Computed example of a mutant assay.
Amino acid sequence: MNRPARLTIATFTASAALLLTACGSGGSDDSSSDKINGADTGAKSSPSASASVASDVKRPEIALPSTFTMTFEGWTSSDPKLQAVLDDGKEGLRATHAAIIDADPNAGPVTFYNEGAALESARSWVKGYVKTDDSLVGKVRVFDSQVRVNSQGLGVLFYCVDEGKAFTKNRKTNKLAGTPRGTSPYLQYRTTLEKTSQGVWKTRTVQTERGACGQ
């Protein structure tokens, strides 16, 4: 999926002209490194996990149109703390995509789930679509989530996104643009999240690498 080349910020490394998405790594509280991918420490999220501990904070509702769907596969953990990181990381990703479709860089959910450099990056990414008058259609598959909480108490969440069936759509011309031929439709996301006093895991940094994920 094509995307503007304007979004290149220190904490948000992504291939210019391609849609935002990512792939995996995971771990547990006793690991000291933020790096997960390829490491043998830490456990991957389990598909037979229990639900995360509910927070008293009212989270914003994020609505995506029927013309654009996001499927999260195996997005569960048996550890309630890790499930909470997964849940807020998921909604943060959905929030940014919804903001692009709504052409609203200052959308409330984007601010709710992001802070600092990650918030600046998300807003810049959305503004790029607003400037070119593009929206999103099709579907993305989010998979291979791996998550842990490191020794500093930060959530470390890696995951993959398959954007091979997602497209940008110009609002005026209805022209569609997908992932360029010869370019991998898979993008790996490497994020860190920090838990607020209200219990929300906000994304604070994001890095991406094109082609780092398999099928």
Rank of each mutant, 00 (worst) to 15 (best):
P180K: 00
F12T: 09
K127Y: 06
D104K: 02
L93P: 00
A14V: 13
G155T: 01
L93Q: 01
L187H: 04
K58V: 08
G116S: 14
I101Q: 07
K90H: 06
D34V: 12
G182V: 01
M1I: 04
K202H: 13
R190Y: 09
P60V: 10
A107S: 06
K81S: 06
W125G: 09
R210F: 13
A16D: 05
D56K: 12
T76C: 01
R123I: 03
T191Q: 10
D162H: 03
D88A: 13
S46A: 14
T168A: 14
L93E: 01
I101W: 04
D102F: 02
V53H: 03
S66K: 15
L82A: 05
T13W: 14
T69F: 09
G199M: 12
S28A: 02
F12D: 05
G89N: 09
R59P: 09
M1H: 03
A10S: 08
T8P: 00
D34I: 13
K165C: 00
T168Y: 12
V206F: 06
G164K: 00
G89I: 13
K195Y: 15
A107H: 01
K35W: 02
L86H: 01
S46E: 11
L119A: 12
W201E: 03
A98P: 10
L7M: 00
K139W: 03
T205K: 14
G178Y: 02
S50G: 11
S145K: 04
R59G: 06
K35G: 01
L18K: 02
Q146G: 09
S52Q: 09
T168F: 13
A107D: 04
P47F: 02
S121Q: 11
P105M: 07
G211N: 07
A99V: 06
K35R: 09
P4Q: 04
T111K: 15
Q198F: 04
H97L: 07
R190W: 06
V149M: 10
V57T: 14
A122K: 14
F158C: 04
G128R: 14
T67H: 13
A22P: 03
R171W: 04
V149P: 11
T203I: 15
L93A: 01
T8K: 00
A5D: 11
V149F: 12
S66G: 13
D40V: 08
G138P: 10
D34A: 11
N174Y: 06
G27N: 15
Y189N: 09
S48E: 14
T13H: 15
T191H: 05
T13V: 12
C23E: 11
R181V: 10
D144H: 08
P180C: 00
L93V: 01
D30I: 02
N2L: 05
D87S: 08
D134T: 10
A212V: 07
M1C: 08
A17Q: 12
G116V: 10
E73D: 11
P65K: 12
N114D: 06
A107F: 02
H97Q: 07
S78F: 03
C160T: 01
W201S: 01
P105Y: 02
N174K: 02
S145V: 05
R6F: 03
F112C: 06
A118E: 07
T132Y: 05
N106C: 01
G178R: 03
K90Y: 05
R3M: 10
G155D: 04
S135R: 05
A99T: 09
Q83R: 12
A118Q: 07
A212S: 06
Q215K: 07
T11R: 02
S78V: 07
D34K: 13
Y129H: 15
A98V: 12
T183S: 03
L187Q: 05
L18Y: 02
V161W: 08
